[in-house]
């Protein structure tokens, strides 16, 4: 009459969980021990679960990328020594420099996972005014493109004025030899 744990198939199942994997929902019956272990997976697991899919997806598309990815496994970060292979296994980078060291292969992962490659949120207070303006310019140009596509010409004109103003300020700063 006892139901056995679906995970270890040894202990008696006392925990009935709704399990989510990807978009699938299922009911599982586990022993306390296996249920507790399920809770230990870290947040990185989310990305880890995606990684093979992302990387194999790349291989299917472009052949030269297969080589890139394979050769990347051998690349190590010159600053902390973490290899791309370590990253694939753990889902963690070793230091900020890894973002540069792993170059295009990591960028592909980021673009796939984040569906974006450009930060457009908060910037540290210490970032220079020039950098801040340039960032704003990129955001506004994106808005402009969107508005033109949506035929919102009035809004687009206002955005264009803002772009001109920022370009003016950037030119001023450049000719002042302002620090950037």
């Amino acid at each position: 009459m006892n139901i056995f744990c679906e995970e270890c198939k040894k202990n008696i199942a006392t925990v009935f969980l709704t399990k989510i994997s990807g978009n699938e929902v299922s009911k599982v019956q586990l022993c306390e021990e296996c249920a507790a272990r399920m809770e230990e997976t870290t947040e990185a697991a989310n990305l880890l679960a995606f990684l093979p899919q992302i990387l194999s997806g790349l291989q299917g598309v472009e052949e030269h990328l297969v080589e890139d990815v394979l050769s990347c496994e051998l690349i190590s970060c010159d600053s902390c020594g973490t290899s791309f292979n370590d990253f694939q296994k753990m889902g963690f980078l070793g230091c900020a420099r890894c973002y540069e060291s792993f170059g295009e292969a990591l960028m592909k992962v980021i673009i796939e996972f984040q569906e974006s490659e450009e930060h457009c949120g908060k910037m540290p207070g210490k970032v220079s005014e020039g950098a801040r303006l340039r960032k704003r310019l990129v955001d506004l140009e994106r808005d402009l493109e969107h508005q033109i596509a949506e035929e919102e010409y009035e809004a687009a004109a206002a955005v264009r004025d803002q772009i001109r103003e920022i370009e003016g300020r950037l030119n001023e700063e450049a000719s002042d030899g302002g620090q950037e």
Binding site: E43, N46, A96, Q114, E117, H119, K122
Partner: peptide, 16 residues
């Protein structure tokens, strides 16, 4: 912090 990628995090799933 990186101009393009924003705040750099241990997992790229948090970057930006």
């Amino acid at each position: 912090f990186d101009q393009k990628l924003g705040y750099l995090t241990t997992s790229p799933s948090n970057v930006g």
